[in-house]
Simulated scan of single mutants.
Amino acid sequence: MKWKYGGWRAVIGAAVLVLLMAAGAWHFWLRTPLTNARPALWHMEKDGREAWLFGTIHAVPSDARWLTPAIKKAIDSSDWLWLEVTGLEDERASLTIFERLGRSAGLPPLPSRLDPAGGKGLRALVTQNAQLASGLDDYESWAAALLINARASAGEGFSSRKAGEAVLTAAFGRAGKPAAGLETIEGQLRFFDRLPEPEQRALLAQAVRDAGASEQLLTELYRDWSQGNMDAIGRLFVAGLGQQPALRSMLVDQRNARWASQIDAIMTRHSAVPFIAVGAGHLAGKDNLRSLLEGRGWRLTRVQ
């Protein structure tokens, strides 16, 4: 399989796009992304332990400037980096996992997994750009949805290499500080792989419907993130997921609860100061990671 649409990071980023598209979060009034950003950052304290908590997005404008003095200071004062997942730079290994989980023999053709309106949309999509949905019949519905979104969002002036995970990994690497993942790449993809087929097909149908609107979505998300507007991010990520309870439970709620337990347990045993960076949507809305950590006795202070 030849990758021409932004590589593995685009596929992981597509998982975020899927969540936003499922929420029906579309606002098109902003056309020019802001380049000077002040995304939200928190300092955490409990029983003499401390940490930094930061929300990321997976793609930013190629000229975005978001490493503010406050974030740089937090990086400098941290001993290690915690991300949702590490190892994305090893594209060969990551794609091997994706191919193993995402491909299956004997699947029905992609159009037959869509209702008549979805099939019509897929035909229109192929007419506009045959590459967006080519070669996907052998992929499970969730994997096809991620690939369509990754392909559609490529070339829109946004870069995953300028976004949180890549920039933070490089900064900690230059300083000789280690990085750890709260999850593995395989674990993240299995969240999608374990979804019931109806939910997978709902993701596929949404990906087809919204393939032409990825620029607007990325722009809206970047604007809210760059302004540190957590209420807006919460609405984008979570509001519409009430209509998709299986998605919300598996991709948001269960993970937030698991991360809160991991972070609390690890920091109880270690005095090193971590810089914790997870998707910004996990820090907003009901039962977000921040509130779960506060429920475990952590005092969070927003510093940016």
Results as ranks from 00 to 15, higher is better:
residue 88 L to D: 15
residue 194 R to Y: 01
residue 103 R to H: 10
residue 85 V to L: 13
residue 195 L to V: 12
residue 95 L to P: 00
residue 84 E to Y: 02
residue 122 L to E: 05
residue 93 A to D: 13
residue 131 Q to S: 15
residue 86 T to R: 13
residue 106 G to W: 12
residue 109 P to F: 00
residue 80 W to L: 14
residue 197 E to L: 14
residue 135 G to R: 04
residue 174 R to N: 11
residue 188 Q to R: 05
residue 110 L to Y: 10
residue 138 D to A: 13
residue 204 L to I: 12
residue 137 D to Q: 11
residue 71 I to D: 02
residue 96 T to Y: 01
residue 105 A to Q: 12
residue 167 V to S: 01
residue 174 R to I: 09
residue 184 T to D: 00
residue 92 R to Q: 13
residue 197 E to C: 00
residue 201 R to Q: 15
residue 157 G to E: 01
residue 171 A to I: 06
residue 63 D to M: 07
residue 105 A to E: 12
residue 158 F to N: 06
residue 84 E to Q: 04
residue 196 P to D: 14
residue 79 D to K: 06
residue 106 G to E: 12
residue 155 G to E: 04
residue 130 A to W: 04
residue 169 T to H: 09
residue 186 E to S: 10
residue 123 R to C: 04
residue 86 T to C: 13
residue 166 A to Y: 08
residue 124 A to D: 15
residue 117 A to L: 09
residue 145 A to W: 09
residue 165 E to S: 11
residue 197 E to K: 02
residue 180 A to V: 11
residue 104 S to E: 15
residue 140 E to D: 06
residue 175 A to R: 15
residue 162 K to M: 11
residue 159 S to M: 02
residue 122 L to K: 08
residue 62 S to V: 12
residue 100 R to C: 06
residue 87 G to V: 10
residue 148 I to N: 02
residue 137 D to P: 14
residue 135 G to D: 09
residue 202 A to R: 14
residue 159 S to Y: 02
residue 157 G to P: 11
residue 68 T to D: 09
residue 162 K to S: 09
residue 151 R to G: 03
residue 153 S to R: 07
residue 157 G to I: 00
residue 147 L to N: 04
residue 123 R to T: 14
residue 200 Q to D: 05
residue 194 R to I: 00
residue 115 D to I: 10
residue 152 A to K: 07
residue 154 A to E: 11
residue 192 F to M: 08
residue 125 L to T: 00
